[in-house]
Design a protein around this nucleic acid. Structure first.
Lengths: 207, 207
DNA sequence: CCGGACCCTAAGCGCTTGCTCAGGTTCGGG
DNA sequence: CCCGAACCTGAGCAAGCGCTTAGGGTCCGG
């Protein structure tokens, strides 16, 4: 079996979700939410995909919303880790920005099923859970802004509007989750490389 | 009542929707769909916002999905018109690309309520309606690609991957509908100008 | 004054939803 | 061989869903 034939690379990242039955339900929920959206997905559908009865879901999760929260939390943690790793590495601001965009985009493409849920179902979360997740997003924003600011100070970048450009960079990356398809002609690596190049052009000092 | 207090600037563009009661329902549906999403919106909610009983909706529209289709169709027509106007005007490829991005982004910001429905509720459409709308999207893609190709041939642009860059440009613009808020610190005009500049940097030939 | 076209509502039908609960199955330790 | 803990299911409840239908106001031509 080739690694590329894996239905969706959503199996390994959920290793932290223990007991195995809870993980099966969570993976089923990711697929269902990504395909139909949170509100259009029924608890019966999720349980069915995991090979269980509707009632089994409520042994492992209090509500359908708790499932979404777990998915969203783990996904945001993972995405933020990718950005921070790139930002804290050695190298010029250009190298670190390219690294950050490349791995962030690659994640959105490779795990586009998860990413779609993480990025577009925020409003379906309850009040408390949503504020928790929004805080994580602000951290992502801060990471990118820091790299860009450092690049400007080092004279590598020419960016008139740092907050606006930060927003645009993140925006560009996040939207990958909306349009990326495994059936498409581009691999996640190719999209990552392309986007890293485009972002560097956006911030590069004119010569 | 001040003009700034208007709930959302979605009133004038729907002039083509003819009995007035049908237009009120449609505007109410746009607000509701944008706020909660199509699937989380009930027909009772739509009718309520329009000041009517639930049954009144079905005098003007056959189904809830037909409402979404009408919104989506009109919105896509409008957005495509903006792009084509910019593409067919006189001027260099740079000027036309900047114009296209500026007005496309401005529309997504100004009418972000409508745009959110138009861009993110595509999957909620029925089979036939979805294919119709997807065709309109491909036209938008073709318009941007044409401008970029012409810019490359004229030597104004340096773009290694034309389809990929086209995708990125559209992607960047569309995502404005996701994050833009009227309460934010940026006006639609400012965002349009910023994005037009960023896109030109992405395609500009290095000097 | 009448009659019908038009537009709307109150009431509710059949179905699906998120979620519950009493009880059955499985299994390791004594 | 039995026991209790862990895990799961069948059946179903109350609420809410999209949508239908019978009928009541309002207004205009005659």
């Amino acid at each position: 079996m080739s690694a590329a034939e894996e239905t969706d690379g959503e199996s390994s990242p959920w290793g932290e979700v223990t007991p195995e039955a809870a993980r099966r339900l969570l993976v089923a929920a990711v697929d269902a939410f990504a395909e139909r959206g949170y509100h259009a997905t029924t608890t019966r559908d999720i349980a069915g995909r995991a090979g269980m009865s509707p009632a089994a879901l409520y042994i492992h999760y209090k509500t359908k919303e708790e499932l979404l929260h777990r998915i969203s939390r783990i996904g945001h943690d993972r995405a933020l880790l990718l950005l921070e790793t790139a930002a804290d590495s050695d190298g010029t601001a250009s190298e670190r920005l390219a690294d950050a965009v490349r791995s962030f985009v690659r994640w959105h493409a490779e795990r586009h099923t998860t990413a779609r849920v993480v990025q577009y179902e925020l409003d379906a979360l309850g009040e408390e859970h949503r504020t928790e997740i929004v805080a994580l997003r602000r951290k992502s924003d801060a990471v990118i802004r820091r790299i860009i600011s450092e690049g400007v100070q080092a004279g590598e970048f020419d960016v008139p509007d740092i907050p606006g450009t930060t927003l645009a960079v993140l925006s560009l990356c996040i939207d990958v989750a909306r349009w990326f398809s495994a059936q498409g002609s581009r691999t996640p690596d190719e999209v990552g490389d392309l986007y890293a190049d485009l972002v560097l052009r956006m911030v590069a000092a004119q010569r």
